[in-house]
């Protein structure tokens, strides 16, 4: 089984790559930083004896997909596509520098959509699985991470549409909404609830790859928090500064 992980050199993506390799998947790993990617790939080869190809690329450019396709073809074609790619940026407020918003949109939404579209025919043929990752930040608009949250919200809607399509052609489409996860993105932030272990999250994702899980929150209680946040009147939500 060959799996592509986009955003694999750190945080959740790295833990996913580890657990996938442990489960015997051959991997194509995509990340921006070649040095970190090489270390992750070497580690998985040495520990688990799986085939791992690293593709160092900036996913906001256009050329990376063909390189990934070529690497995946060498490993026999894509069976699963995991897309824990994304990122936030300081200064991402509404009406900030438009180029920053555009970059965040391409990183969090455009790259994911383009990647799924590129491999969809292959996944359809092989009955594969696509896994997307949203964010609890997209549940309501906040005064920070405006473009990031909007992109993730767009992604959630897009994945629901994709799920319709997947149901028709036999491709499992899964979408996870992580709560606070103890990755570099959350490190040092004063958060109101404890952070979860990214490795526990990765184990869950890998364990459930074969099932129709639809939309899931991790940890599960974030589903109820998100419902409460959605229902909360604006006057209260504004004061909460979530």
């Amino acid at each position: 089984m060959t799996t592509v992980v986009v955003g694999a050199s750190a945080g959740l993506g790295r833990r996913l790559a580890f657990r996938l390799a442990e489960a015997g998947h051959d991997l194509v790993l995509v990340a921006r930083e070649a040095r970190d990617l090489a270390a992750v790939a070497a580690d998985l080869r040495v520990r688990f004896g799986v085939r791992v190809t690293g593709v160092a690329a900036d996913v906001t450019d256009d050329e990376w997909l063909e390189e990934v396709a070529c690497a995946a073809a060498n490993l026999g074609g894509v069976d699963a596509l995991l897309l824990p790619v994304g990122g936030v940026a300081a200064g991402d407020t509404p009406c900030a520098e438009p180029r920053l918003g555009e970059l965040l949109w391409r990183l969090n939404y455009g790259a994911v959509v383009a990647c799924v579209a590129r491999f969809w025919p292959e996944l359809t043929m092989r009955g594969g699985v696509v896994v997307g990752f949203g964010s609890i930040a997209s549940v309501r608009g906040r005064d920070a991470n405006a473009a990031y949250a909007a992109a993730k919200r767009g992604l959630a809607t897009w994945f629901e549409s994709l799920r319709h399509l997947g149901a028709q052609v036999g491709v499992r489409v899964q979408f996870y909404v992580p709560g606070y996860i103890d990755t570099g993105q959350a490190f040092g932030l004063p958060l109101k609830l404890p952070k979860s272990n990214p490795d526990a999250f990765a184990r869950l994702v890998v364990k459930d790859l074969g099932y129709e899980t639809g939309v899931r929150y991790f940890p599960f209680f974030w589903r109820y928090i998100c419902v409460a946040l959605r229902l909360m009147p604006w006057g209260i939500y504004r004061r909460l500064r979530f």
């Binding site: 994304g86 940026a89 300081a90 200064g91 920053l100 570099g184 993105q185 490190f187």
Partner: peptide
């Protein structure tokens, strides 16, 4: 990924007291 705007100023990596 945590990105820093092109401010040119020195920004320390995120830290936790």
């Amino acid at each position: 990924m945590r990105m820093n705007p092109a401010s040119g100023g020195k920004r320390l990596p995120p830290a936790q007291a």
